[in-house]
Design a binder for these strands. Structure first.
Lengths: 144, 144
DNA sequence: TTTTTTACTTGTAAATTACAAGCAATAATA
DNA sequence: TATTATTGCTTGTAATTTACAAGTAAAAAA
């Protein structure tokens, strides 16, 4: 497939791919919320529509941000997982959450405070590493 | 104004505000390309339409990411500038550019390589600081 | 005083996203 | 083994967002 980029600016080109309502949210649902099946995603808080999910998962797969596979004992359920390229999006997500925490509370008072937000505030790099480690661990364990 | 947030997740809430084709591009045009007037923006490589620009600038102003002002000797030209809150978006932009540089070259061979990309590769924090400093300097100097 | 420039607004068309329903294959249950 | 439920989608249509084209008012320049 070929993608349309507005120009050759690295900032803008990332936004050409990731700058929409869903791409990074889906990645976050995998990385942070441990979602990995189609059903997991549609049952999320963010409530993505099935047709949009389908389109975006295909795009993420094409871009090698996500892989689609099946578990040996189940021919039905598809398992979506982040590739190393996908995990490299973690620092972007961390910066987004950090910015929210610092700048969005006034317009969004309900914004969550749990989930190791102290670590996020103190040490973004460590927070990112923790997210990646815990994701990788979970993947190693999950042979169900 | 009130904003619609999908849920109370800090990751998703940032994307509710910033996750579209233009919000972060406009911020980048100010921070990196030194754009500050309506005309500057519409003449950019990214070629935003005037109605979209108008809507997005208003939203950025409302969110206190950007201020709108005039220079003393000119009653016509509006000057748009990043607030401290807006400058706090820098690390997000830097991570986006970093990800592009590492992951988008295959699908986008023309992606730029200039603009202190070496510093970006070596030290993201220093790169972000450099962007902010040079923006602030430029603003101090510009009394034209 | 006329022409340009700047900063927009107002249509309308195109593209993206949302909502609702339905369907085929597999898996679980009776 | 037959029926029911679950999973992972697709299809159609409505709503929202973005794009394109044109036009306008105020200020500035010629």
């Amino acid at each position: 497939m070929d993608y349309k980029f507005r120009c050759d600016c690295p900032f803008t080109s990332a936004i050409d791919i990731l700058g929409d309502k869903w791409m990074l949210v889906i990645v976050k649902q995998m990385l942070v919320d441990g979602k990995e099946t189609f059903k997991d995603f549609i049952e999320s808080d963010e409530a993505i529509a099935t047709n949009i999910l389908s389109i975006k998962l295909k795009l993420l797969e094409e871009l090698e941000i996500v892989t689609k596979s099946k578990l040996p004992n189940n021919k039905k359920t598809n398992i979506y997982r982040l590739t190393p390229k996908g995990l490299e999006l973690t620092p972007i997500l961390v910066e987004l959450a950090f910015w929210s925490d610092n700048n969005l509370r006034e317009v969004h008072p309900d914004l969550a405070k749990g989930d190791g937000i102290d670590l996020l505030r103190q040490d973004k790099k460590a927070f990112a590493s923790a997210l990646i480690s815990s994701y990788q661990e979970k993947m190693d364990i999950t042979k169900d």
